[in-house]
Design a protein around this nucleic acid. Sequence first.
RNA 1: GGCCGGGUGGCCGAGUGGCUUAGGCAAGGGCCUGCAAAGCCCUGUACGCGGGUUCGAUUCCCGCCCCGGCCUCCA
Length: 461
Amino acid sequence: MTLRLYDTRTRTVGELQLQRPGHVGVYVCGPTVQAAPHVGHLRSAVAVDVLHRWLLATGHRVTFVRNVTDVDDKIIHDAGHNDEPYWALATRMTNAFTRAYDALHVLPPTVEPRVTGHLPQIVVLIEHLIDNGTAYESGGDVYLSVKAVPSYGEISHQDPTKLKQGEADDSLKRDPLDFALWKAAKPGEPQWASPWGPGRPGWHIECSAMAVEYLGTSFDIHAGGLDLVFPHHENENAQSTAAGHGFATTWVHHGLVTAEGGEKMSKSLGNSVLVTEALSTVPAPVLRYALGAAHYRSTIEWSDQAVADAAAAYDRIATFVRNATELTVGIEPVEQPGWEDFAAALDDDLGVPQALAVVHNAVRRGNTQLADRELPGLAGTLALVRRMLGVLCLDPISDWPSSGSSELTPVVDALVRLLVETRAQARERKDWTQADALRDRLTEAGIVLEDTAEGVRWRLT
RNA sequence: GGCCGGGUGGCCGAGUGGCUUAGGCAAGGGCCUGCAAAGCCCUGUACGCGGGUUCGAUUCCCGCCCCGGCCUCCA
């Protein structure tokens, strides 16, 4: 079984075709580092992280490129507003994004190229496009001639003749559809030398240049948000095609996060939930679950209810893993079925919802084995569940080891144990009033007790 | 105006021309428990509306309504 993915260009799910067997080149459009990341940005990161991890889990070597757009109109504008150099704002926000990715344990990319570090590659690509007649210089700007690219529209399925011509009529363009590869410098703005005079790159050209730099002229997967399909990816594809590059074989786009009410979350709409805000109330693994449990192409509506649902589901899994781990130390596991179903679900266009259904079914089986003290089978189920969770980065032990009681200091642990022992003595003499009073006090303090055949287990709520 | 996605049981969320109509949460019943907690079992008979195709449609086709995305920066 091999991975099948939905390709935006063909609008079909098909087997992933690789340039080099066993090796996958992935380019993901990363953020424009203009403002602090919101949960929509993290959804993007989590969606492609699952792709990344599944490719690794199925034995591929992955070159994973996620760029940072660190110079553009908005960054320049906002930085100017704060009387701050654009590169200072870009660096601050790049760091904020990195912290957000790290908080959810998103695997780092193989390389994280920045626009400002790739001006030579960008200039060379533009020169090539001018030389072959598909781009032209005009008043210090350089534009791609969209008419020179017959396949224009193949990614977004837009008919160029029917596009609204939104951008203000730019007399420097030969055709309203043409878009800038290079923008002539304006006073006070960052600028780099070029054959066409000082200026800076247009938005789309950076990705074409950097993808080719690290992945070659033809590579396997180009990913990004649904909102990038047009014009960004259409234009990227057009430039690269014009340059004679094969560029991406498969175009993968993930869905967006909306605010409550269904409207897309974005900075410009002012309805963003920042990652730092979310993490102040939501445990990181729960956030990861909330953003990763839906299919990557579906819309996620962000709400307290969505978070609560994710917390309940994750806690159910985490509780099982914790309980099963306690009982199976040193037990030789008997392998349990389920991995094939899980793998089949992920191979089918990263069907995480179905994969999670397999996980939950395994958890239910494991809970039965746990109740029956069928320990070798339980150990096998635990191993299976943790293996599956590992792919999704949701294993409470190896991915999120700090959650649970282990983070408590030994002092607190000892105090709780003392109370638990006192209660146990009360229970032995059947002093239920005393025993329940102690349990109630602990519950009030945020500690839940569970009486099991093996003794008392406690955890934080 | 053009292109696209979606409307599934109380909520979230998969999926499918009939077959066993995922999974989670919530609800009701049962089991376990001194009582709880955790857990297990059972129950609910859903697919926006109107047509059509079909032996049979939630699933295919047509029309309509509603929600959302893109067409301008955006993950």
